[in-house]
């Protein structure tokens, strides 16, 4: 069953592009990644799903109901964490959480307490006095305290330290096991790869592809940089899967896709002084999708 169904959703702001003809489905129980660079249209899509803005054309359904017409009804089972969290500054954390809980017709106190403990949140402080990371924690707690069936996260990890990020991911996995569906938007490929089953990749307002993470893994790109005294590109030119080969002084760099062993044996034969093997950033992955389209 599809929890989210987006059909040809388009949103334009005057002449500015928002999103164009976006369609994808998120199945029940899935952790679905939504990935793209800043300004690609992730937040626009999410805000339309949440009925904060209205689509120019197309439609979207959540739990089988139109996301605009039945917004208040759907919202009962949605937990949302925005990319930038803003709350009523002069409120205390505990008051804000109580206020958030008061919108749901169930007793959220136990879950709220648990979440506060997991995220190590000091509820006696005023929102105004919180750091960005702590505000984000408030966001997490208030988004999850009613145990929603659908969790929508818009770049949720910014501002969280690695430890809290890990706890947050554990929390999400736990919620997912309990049956929650998760839509996770991010511009960081690593975190999406770690968490998600499938991803939709969006660029310049359009969906480039919807893929299983396992497929993306098979297309595993590596960015390799080698420092060697007598650097030349001869060794690598002949290998299939080497792209963007570049020699600069004694630095060789290229992007590689394929069986990593073929490159490693070549490198093993060389006298090298240093080596870097990195995940290419998202832009480079996008380049792949654009190149393959041409």
């Amino acid at each position: 069953m599809n929890i989210i169904e987006i059909n040809h959703l388009t949103k334009t702001y005057g002449h500015a592009r928002g999103i164009v003809d976006v369609s994808f489905q998120v199945k029940e129980g899935e952790i679905f990644g939504f990935i793209g660079p800043n300004g690609a249209g992730k937040s626009t899509t999410i805000r339309t799903l949440l009925a904060l803005i209205h689509p120019t054309s197309g439609s979207a359904k959540i739990f089988g109901k139109d996301c605009i017409d039945f917004a208040p009804d759907i919202a009962k089972e949605i937990g949302y964490l925005p990319s930038e969290v803003f709350y009523y500054d002069n409120m205390k954390v505990s008051d804000l959480l109580k206020y958030a809980a008061s919108f749901y017709k169930k007793d959220c106190r136990t879950r709220m307490k648990e979440l506060v403990e997991i995220m190590e949140l000091d509820t006696t402080k005023k929102i105004d006095d919180l750091s960005l990371g702590n505000k984000k924690k408030v966001g997490i707690v208030q988004g999850l305290l009613h145990e929603p069936k659908l969790i929508i996260l818009d770049e949720p990890t910014s501002g969280l330290d690695p430890l809290m990020q890990q706890r947050f991911f554990d929390l999400l996995i736990e919620e997912n096991k309990k049956g929650a569906t998760i839509l996770f938007s991010s511009h960081i490929l690593g975190e999406v790869q770690r968490l998600c089953d499938r991803v939709a990749i969006i660029k310049e307002g359009k969906i480039v592809t919807v893929e299983k993470i396992s497929n993306l893994r098979e297309n595993n790109y590596k960015k390799i940089k080698i420092e060697a005294d007598n650097a030349s590109d001869n060794a690598f030119v002949s290998i299939a899967g080497v792209n963007n080969l570049n020699v600069d002084g004694n630095l060789i760099s290229f992007i590689f896709k394929g069986d990593i062993n073929t490159v490693m044996t070549k490198i093993a034969d060389m006298e090298i002084t240093n080596i870097w093997i990195e995940e290419p950033d998202l832009e480079e992955i996008f380049m792949h999708y654009y190149e393959s389209e041409d």
Binding site: L50, A51, L52, P72, D73, A75, K76, I78, Y80, P82, F86, Y87, Y88, A100, F103, Y104, Q142
Partner: peptide, 10 residues
């Protein structure tokens, strides 16, 4: 704070 209030079930 619109992203807080207007995603609530009201």
């Amino acid at each position: 704070t619109a992203e807080f209030l207007f995603v609530k079930p009201v």
